[in-house]
């Protein structure tokens, strides 16, 4: 985990202490839960707001013994420029949605659409093995916000809908402790400045 941060903060050595402290705060509570964490989750707990980051969603188990045959992830608002990691084992499809406001991409291209949903299908992930489903994307420049990646895991028999998110203003740890199927999440932290200014 530290390595991941190190890569993205080469020139930001100063921030280590703060990041470590922040991680300790969020992670320590989560780590305790992580011991029994059996939900779909993002492999890191924090990423940089306003930066291009890798998001790796992990599916830790099947559906009550049944193997997983597809995983669908909905991309939250503000997450743009989605690029999915190539994967030889799964068929990958995407669904697009219109952006509320068109934006300029690199080179000034006008972009009106963004990825709404990524679908991995056409394989069988046995119970008792975990798998990573990875994509890169530019995070919204909103330090402090928690991004919820709603995920639907379909199995040969049954499914898990990791789509529950807390009500506005709710205590998140309380929510995570009690929600039967919470969505995967990651916290946006301040990187001092955004990587991109859009």
């Amino acid at each position: 985990m530290l390595l991941a941060f190190a890569i993205y903060s080469e020139s930001e050595m100063m921030k280590y202490t703060r990041i470590l402290l922040g991680m300790a705060a969020v992670a320590s509570t989560l780590m305790v839960g992580q011991l029994t964490w059996a939900h779909a989750y993002v492999h890191v707990t924090e990423v940089y707001a306003g930066w291009r980051q890798d998001i790796e969603i992990r599916i830790p188990h099947g559906c009550y013994g049944s193997p997983t045959n597809s995983v669908r992830v909905r991309i939250p608002d503000g997450v743009v420029s989605v690029v999915i990691e190539h994967n030889r084992d799964w068929n990958i499809e995407t669904r697009m949605r219109k952006l509320p406001e068109p934006r300029r991409g690199e080179g000034g291209v006008l972009i009106t659409e963004t990825v709404d949903e990524i679908i991995w299908s056409g394989n069988s992930l046995p119970e008792g093995r975990f798998e990573r489903f990875t994509f890169r994307a530019v995070m919204p420049n909103e330090p402090g916000r928690i991004l919820w990646f709603r995920t639907i895991q379909a199995c040969d028999e049954g499914e898990h809908r990791w789509v529950d998110i807390p009500d506005e203003g709710a205590n998140i740890l309380e929510f995570l402790r009690s929600a039967p199927e919470p969505a995967a999440f990651v916290k946006l932290v301040d990187a001092g400045r955004p990587q991109y200014d859009y």
């Binding site: 909905r74 949903e117 709603r150 809908r161």
Partner: peptide, 10 residues
């Protein structure tokens, strides 16, 4: 209640 596949109301 699912308003759509991902959007759930409790």
């Amino acid at each position: 209640g699912f308003v759509d596949d991902f959007e759930m109301l409790r």
